[in-house]
């Protein structure tokens, strides 16, 4: 969600010095007494996360490290679907063992560290900004490698058995439809295309596949890409259990093609290539047509999310111009929905 990321206002110098000292104290325990935190800068962050980049020296430490942390002063509750940073760190660990490219989690913050919830992880070089990945020549090779790499990564994620640790919500297709329909109806908005899409989705829901661990927000913007392709899967906060087609379709939702509408897979590739690699790596055999229902569900979800973000302006909870403006993006998903519904008439 590019709109939700703001370059950050620099905190007061004294606060930053104190913060640097705290980080250094914690990291000395990981890397030894010679470690120094030379520099710390906030990279970006939405309402629910802070991301800091640290430059380190001394000891056995790497030159740079990333801290992902829950905001301290903000009363913004993390979105109810977010699993919390310690759980996120745990799942990234599982993913690494399953061979999925992820940052390496080096330390999860404890209560006595005095830094709140969060974890330190390695810095994976590369690009996350979708429009650059889609348009710059230097990523041409990456774009052709990405479909298969994403298929392999998703097959890896979907193969992870988490047992009950952490306990995650199970949310299948019809559960999500009901949840988003309830949000929509509670807002009092009257957008008949959404009603038509919701009726169609309910009447045409496919039988659920065996539930697996889902990333929950797998798309450009949430993956690190370098010149050779997928470098790391990031932003695990919306993990849940559910239908594997959900993760595949989210990347196909037109809102996440960033203008390249003719490339169904994320604006960069063919869905078939992802599905072939996914099945070759042990995922269930899925055809492009099986993704249709979930792609429409993706547009419903993003449209309702835009309505909810506008709602936070309307109620006065977040009276910013950005929250007002996002209400005028609902019509993007209306257009996607009516075109997807038209396609179903001919299916």
């Amino acid at each position: 969600m590019e709109l939700l990321f703001f370059p950050l206002i620099v905190a007061k110098m004294s606060d930053l010095q104190e913060f640097r000292q705290l980080l250094q104290t914690v990291l000395k325990r990981v890397y030894g007494d010679k470690l120094r935190v030379d520099d710390v800068n906030r990279l970006s962050g939405g309402a629910s996360q802070e991301t800091w980049l640290m430059n380190l020296s001394g000891g056995s430490a790497p030159e740079t490290l990333i801290l992902r942390r829950a905001p301290q002063r903000s009363q913004d509750a993390p979105s109810s679907a977010a699993i919390g940073l310690p759980n996120e760190a745990k799942i990234i660990g599982y993913a690494e063992k399953a061979g999925v490219p992820v940052p390496n989690v080096v330390y999860v913050l404890q209560e006595h560290d005095g830094l709140g919830e969060g974890y330190f992880m390695s810095r994976v070089p590369g690009e996350t900004i979708a429009r650059r990945i889609l348009r710059e020549d230097r990523y041409a090779e990456a774009r052709s490698a990405l479909p298969a790499q994403c298929g392999q990564a998703l097959a890896g994620i979907h193969s992870i058995g988490i047992g009950d640790d952490p306990a995650l919500n199970l949310s299948q297709g019809l559960d999500q439809l009901s949840q988003y329909e309830d949000f929509y109806l509670s807002l009092g908005a009257c957008r008949p295309i959404f009603d038509l899409a919701m009726v169609w989705l309910r009447e045409n829901a496919p039988d659920p596949l065996t539930p697996v661990l889902l990333h929950g927000d797998f798309r450009l913007g949430n993956i690190m890409v370098d010149e050779t392709g997928l470098a790391a899967v990031l932003d695990w906060e919306l993990c849940h259990l559910g239908d594997p087609r959900e993760d595949i379709a989210w990347m196909c939702t037109n809102s996440w093609r960033f203008g390249n509408i003719d490339k169904r897979l994320g604006g960069f590739g063919d869905l078939e290539h992802l599905l072939d690699a996914y099945a070759a790596d042990g995922g269930p055999v899925i055809s492009p047509k099986d993704i249709d229902w979930w792609e429409m569900m993706g547009s419903v979800k993003w449209g309702v999310m835009c309505m909810m973000m506008y709602e936070s302006f309307r109620t006065g909870a977040e009276p910013t111009v950005e929250r007002a403006a996002i209400g005028r993006r609902v019509s993007e998903t209306e257009m996607d929905l009516i075109r997807l519904l038209e396609a179903q008439r001919h299916a």
Binding site: P192, G259, N260, I261, R328, E334, M335, I338
Partner: peptide, 22 residues
């Protein structure tokens, strides 16, 4: 519905990829 969506999108996001298609 499609004509209504076209008119709305021309105002809200005239550069959106699906508008040109529609």
């Amino acid at each position: 519905l499609k004509m209504t969506a076209i008119d709305q999108l021309k105002v809200d996001q005239p550069n959106y990829s699906a508008l040109k298609k529609a």
